[in-house]
């Protein structure tokens, strides 16, 4: 049962990677990375039970907490870049 679910999550991870590779816009790629991160957290929490090692849930917890920081950093990067471009193109 756990195995079936983890297989479904793995297939979704493959789809997310394909979207990240194809992604016409940069936002598609960020979306794919974010999705991949949450899927990793889910996969780890399922696999921790598949292996019977609930101690390992710490890893899923860390992804649930930290994956967000990467997306925010990307947003700040976009914001800074558009501010810099606005600076140069406006004048």
């Amino acid at each position: 049962m756990y195995f079936t679910v983890s297989l479904a999550i793995l297939v979704t991870m493959v789809l997310a990677v394909i979207r990240a590779l194809k992604g016409p816009s940069v936002y598609d790629r960020v979306l794919a990375v974010n999705m991949f991160g949450t899927k990793t957290a889910l996969l780890l929490s399922v696999v921790a039970f598949l292996y019977g090692r609930p101690d390992f849930l710490d890893l899923a917890l860390i992804y649930a907490l930290i994956n967000f920081v990467g997306v925010l950093a990307v947003l700040e990067f976009f914001q800074k870049r558009s501010a810099a471009q606005g600076h140069t193109t406006k004048d």
């Binding site: 816009s25 936002y27 960020v30 979306l31 974010n34 949450t38 957290a41 889910l42 929490s45 039970f49 609930p54 849930l57 710490d58 899923a60 917890l61 649930a64 907490l65 994956n67 967000f68 997306v71 925010l72 947003l75 976009f78 914001q79 558009s82």
Partner: peptide, 30 residues
């Protein structure tokens, strides 16, 4: 383990929609 799973769930539910909102906002502004 249940408590840890509950925390994972809460954090996923907090950060997921926020990240999506922020991403959509950035895309719209761009």
């Amino acid at each position: 383990a249940t408590i840890k799973l509950l925390t994972i769930l809460i954090f996923l539910l907090l950060t997921g929609p926020t990240a999506t909102y922020a991403l959509a906002n950035a895309a719209l502004l761009s």
